[in-house]
Design a binder for these strands. Structure first.
Length: 272
DNA sequence: AGATTCGCCTGAGAGC
DNA sequence: TGCTCTCAGGCGAATC
């Protein structure tokens, strides 16, 4: 599943292929994504030049010379490939963005939880980006910030840091890993976590995301040629998906508990 | 307002 | 082999 590190890796991967390039032709084969692909997508994009390739949370934001911005979210199963022309279509290849370089950007998404949308030049912000919390690498994001935002909250700290309105990018895997590294149990009420603990947690969230981006950069270096396989961070996981296996710190079994409808993994000895 | 649940999708894996 | 069932998961919308 593409989490923030993978989206950032993809952004870095496609950037050299799209910067300064014009979108010559846009082919929409299936509009049925999380939200319907805008009917005027091709008309608005064709002939436009890509001026910037940004990321906000898990959205890729391609800025065009028209002022419009192309928003791409990969959802659960979305992929973006940079391909040579005439690459055979496979199932779930929903959109192509043909570049004036002769290559094309192909959007592939079996589960269709992803989205391809336009953020118009005349819109100061986009409703899906409005209200998002800070990026984890933004200086605004700190232990003090988490502490202040969490006062009086009874929800589990894991759900709290996974809330995109609080901070973006801490998905299920990385929230679990950061909480382990910070020694905080995922089920504790967010409002009962101390300022000191939040300082550690904020640092660990940045740390795991940063490490994962480095890993992604390694595994996906050649992604332009083919796939963006996930699992690159697997070998560095301390708790996620390791129910019953030995804690890498204390050897006691890792436990799994459903918190807020999501599987949560933790070590009851190392996390308090 | 905050907390919780639902729903959208398909593929993978388990069980029969 | 093939069918059925369960689970996973981002995240907005609806509901409590």
């Amino acid at each position: 599943m593409p989490e923030l590190p993978e989206v950032e890796t993809i952004r870095r991967g496609i950037e050299p292929h799209v910067l300064g390039r014009r979108l010559q032709r846009v082919v929409v084969r299936d509009r049925r994504l999380r939200w319907p692909v805008p009917a005027d997508l091709a008309v608005r994009l064709e002939g436009r030049r890509v001026e910037r390739a940004d990321r906000r949370a898990k959205y890729l934001v391609l800025h065009l010379d028209s002022g419009d911005r192309l928003l791409i979210h990969l959802g659960m199963s979305g992929r973006i490939w940079v391909l040579d022309p005439h690459e055979p279509l496979v199932k779930h290849d929903h959109l192509d963005f043909e570049l004036d370089s002769g290559r094309l950007l192909r959007f592939h998404d079996p589960r269709r939880f992803g989205a391809v949308l336009l953020w118009g030049a005349d819109e100061p912000d986009h409703e899906l980006l409005r209200g998002l919390g800070p990026e984890p690498f933004d200086p605004v994001f700190s232990g003090d910030y988490l502490f202040e935002r969490s006062r009086g909250r009874s929800a589990a700290v894991k759900n709290f840091v996974m809330d995109g309105r609080i901070v973006v990018g801490a998905g299920n895997i990385y929230a679990a890993e950061a909480l382990f590294r910070a020694g905080i149990r995922p089920g504790r009420a967010a409002g009962r976590v101390s300022r000191t603990e939040y300082a550690t947690l904020a640092a660990r969230i940045r740390e795991v995301l940063d490490e994962a981006i480095v890993q992604g950069g390694t595994t996906l270096r050649d992604f332009a040629g083919a796939n963006g396989e996930s699992g690159y961070f697997q070998q560095d996981l301390y708790v996620y998906g390791r129910e019953g296996q030995a804690c890498r710190n204390c050897n006691r079994p890792i436990r799994r508990k459903v918190i807020g409808q999501r599987s949560s993994f933790f070590c009851a000895h190392c996390q308090r």
